[in-house]
Design a protein around this nucleic acid. Sequence first.
DNA 1: CGGAATCCTCTTCGATACTG
DNA 2: CAGTATCGAAGAGGATTCCG
Lengths: 211, 211
Amino acid sequence: MSRSYRQFCGVAKALDLVGERWTLLLVRDLILGPRRYTDLLHGLPGLTTNLLAKRLRELTRHGLIRRTTLPPPASVLVYELTEEGRRLEPVVLALGAFGAEYMTEPSPEDLMNARWSAVSLRRRFRGSPQQGIVQLEIGEQLFQARFGDEIEVRDGTPWAPDVRLMGDLPTWGALLTGRERLRDLVKRGRLRREGPAQISSAFARSVRIRP
Amino acid sequence: MSRSYRQFCGVAKALDLVGERWTLLLVRDLILGPRRYTDLLHGLPGLTTNLLAKRLRELTRHGLIRRTTLPPPASVLVYELTEEGRRLEPVVLALGAFGAEYMTEPSPEDLMNARWSAVSLRRRFRGSPQQGIVQLEIGEQLFQARFGDEIEVRDGTPWAPDVRLMGDLPTWGALLTGRERLRDLVKRGRLRREGPAQISSAFARSVRIRP
DNA sequence: CGGAATCCTCTTCGATACTG
DNA sequence: CAGTATCGAAGAGGATTCCG
């Protein structure tokens, strides 16, 4: 039985469920899609295996994630958010918006991660008159964003992209913190584009990336 | 020096600052206005004095709250959110929205608190064509809400209200969790109104209170 | 190799007592 | 009123071991 604040208040009830250390970071890492135990473990250095197991048990017990098997041929055990768990996305995005102000330059000991950058796209998005599908290649990792009135960001390559944007993680970091402009990074060859510039520009505007 | 996740990610940076136990509840209790040390302590049963002092020190060091003296004649030491600290309100409201689903009936050991109910008005608000100032009297405590396009909720009686709504805490709880309807509570005398019903109705609609 | 449980140490939390 | 000081209990971090 875990500790509770015992307050009849939504904020306290929420923190009873997800206020423990690491819990909301786990949720963040599940927002883009299901992940397996070791993916989660390796994606969260500092989190130990016993604590991960414990947190996954708690989240499962509260109905916020479930353990399931991916359809063949993958047939692999993964954890994924339930519908209830998806309701935590606004919490994660609000925290991200608050914390983003404290994220100018990565400090030397800061870990960087492509997935965290991809998650931030959801909260950066402000709607776009145009629509399209962008494939983001952040180092070795692929994500796709389908945008228009809404934006959907997914792990992997579920769709056929209109345009691909390719760069390493520090490059994407510089772009997403506003330290660099898109056109400069393309000019210097740190970011590569394949496909119509019009769509990548619309995407950039929609997620507040400096053109 | 406090523990850090050391991740270059807004969510992690936010949790580095406010992810510890009690911190966000403290922020919640400061949203409606400045409070003194003992008010905070008594408003958060279970939080001990040494931990409160520690949390206040951390929040102050991070620039999220400040210690200040109320203008005379009060001349009393209080803690209040800074501008930076106010940026946490969306986080608190998002948590409240998530947790509200788990808040049907108060369990016997759940504490209730007028202030927490008043904070929830901000997240429940969805805009109103009409405007007005409602005084909420929740047990002994007074709050005011000025609403229209936006809503502002304040501790105490800063304005001249158009209408007053008076009831005890359980009554307000039943109203705000949707267990009871406004008109039934008024009919049964558990809620009293003083002032034009038109304004209290507009207010009720705007904060999703069942008419 | 993925998915844990165990053991041990260290830090944080909680309860109470005490002080300017 | 506004905090410190002290101390046992709970939780987190790290390494190792176990199981299918």
